[in-house]
Design a protein around this nucleic acid. Sequence first.
RNA 1: GGAGAGAUGGCAGAGUGGUCGAAUGCGGUGGUCUUGAAAACCAUUGUACCGAAAGGUACCGGGGGUUCGAAUCCCUCUCUCUCCGCCA
Length: 422
Amino acid sequence: MLRTSIIKENTPEIISSLKKKNFDGQKIIKKIIETDNIRIKIQKELNSLQNHMNSLSKEIGICFAKNNKEKAEKLKSESGKLKILIQTKNDEQKIAIKKINQLLIQIPNIANKNVPIGNTEKENEIIKNFGTIPKLEKSKLPHWELAKKYDIIDFEKGNIITGAGFPLYKNKGAKLQRSLINFFLDFNISNGYTEYLPPQLVNEASAFGTGNFPDKEGQMYHIEKDDLYLIPTAEVPLTNIFRNEIINSVNLPIKLTAYTPCFRREAGSYGKNVRGLNRLHQFDKVEIVQLAHPEKSYSNLKEMVKHISNLLEELKLPFRLVKLCGGDLSFSSALTYDFEVFSAGQNKWLEVSSVSNFESFQATRTNIKFREDSNLNFCHTLNGSALALPRIMAAILENNQTESGIKIPESLYKYTGFKMIS
RNA sequence: GGAGAGAUGGCAGAGUGGUCGAAUGCGGUGGUCUUGAAAACCAUUGUACCGAAAGGUACCGGGGGUUCGAAUCCCUCUCUCUCCGCCA
């Protein structure tokens, strides 16, 4: 959420940054500024009325103490009138604040100046390619065929148990999944991230805090009976650990990591994009989150990008780093890099990580501040997948397929206890 | 799920209708003393909004009500604790 004070101070810059995200903010921002000026006017009036009321009440108290009932009654009738005025002003103020907030939450985060202009993923900027794309036999298979061949993922049983998009891992497939989780967590921990195992259901305030609610409400599973949401990513509980907190600046950056299953309704998805492990309703992911000093958040972002590159290099997977254009940027993000792994069985790039700087957008919604000397300011929040499991699994299966089976990346040996799936 | 008790500043903990934004202790910060430190002593120490400032206003879990006046009384919601029931 943007703050009214910032909007007022940088109106033209904000409107033009929002354009990059294909958001026309002209009207809504004008409305916010107008309403805020009304709010200030109301508050001034209200404060002076309240001030008057407070001194009257004190006086009445003194009159009673001195047994001067006559004067007390007279003052009482005066304050009665004031009371009605105050109530009216109070209601007006509440309405104005509510109106401003309703407008503010509709505005996406502004794009960083380095975000490329563009409307769709076609205009994303490919920064760099890493690794080499494997040359496979003509008989190469996509991962869903391989999964069947080696009996490691049962999609049909998942359909029976739950429905489409809920795969059932088994045998070495289950072990490989568990190994990847542990490998990612250990790698993150050894780079200074603190491990958490958070709740997988969150309340509305938490979902609001990270910007998933109300904007992407339809993408989350909602438990109506208890009014809770299944997390679409560990970002939601991790960021909300610090909701309404003031952090001492010496403790920044705070670095967190967590493994959680993630649940997404993926309303509107169809076709080959949802084949196999490509897009699921439930999947495993290890996430990293940072709470950062505003002046350092972009170097922290760089560090996170490097960290994720290292992780993918450990797995010997070919990948590319992509900078998202304005139109492809999410509601809350100011700058996002995607990591895409090349999966040779399908001949396509699969997004396995998305690393973003949200600047103070989420911190404003969650009210996470830091204290430096005697000043209070909003933190910056950042997060990234390190990494999302299913597509990594898909790429490992597809890229490492051989006549004799699937080769496990060396870094995983100590976790899997086996070197081949055959 | 049933019955009861409770929620006060960073923490502990007073306050049951008036001058209470809130005693006191601990912690934090600054200072005095000291070669240095500890101890002791002094001062200071919540957040938001309005205001150039002085200052003003709001906030004692959330929301609503009674009252001229609410941390204090009433209603309601949420959460915590104790007991009973159920249970991995």
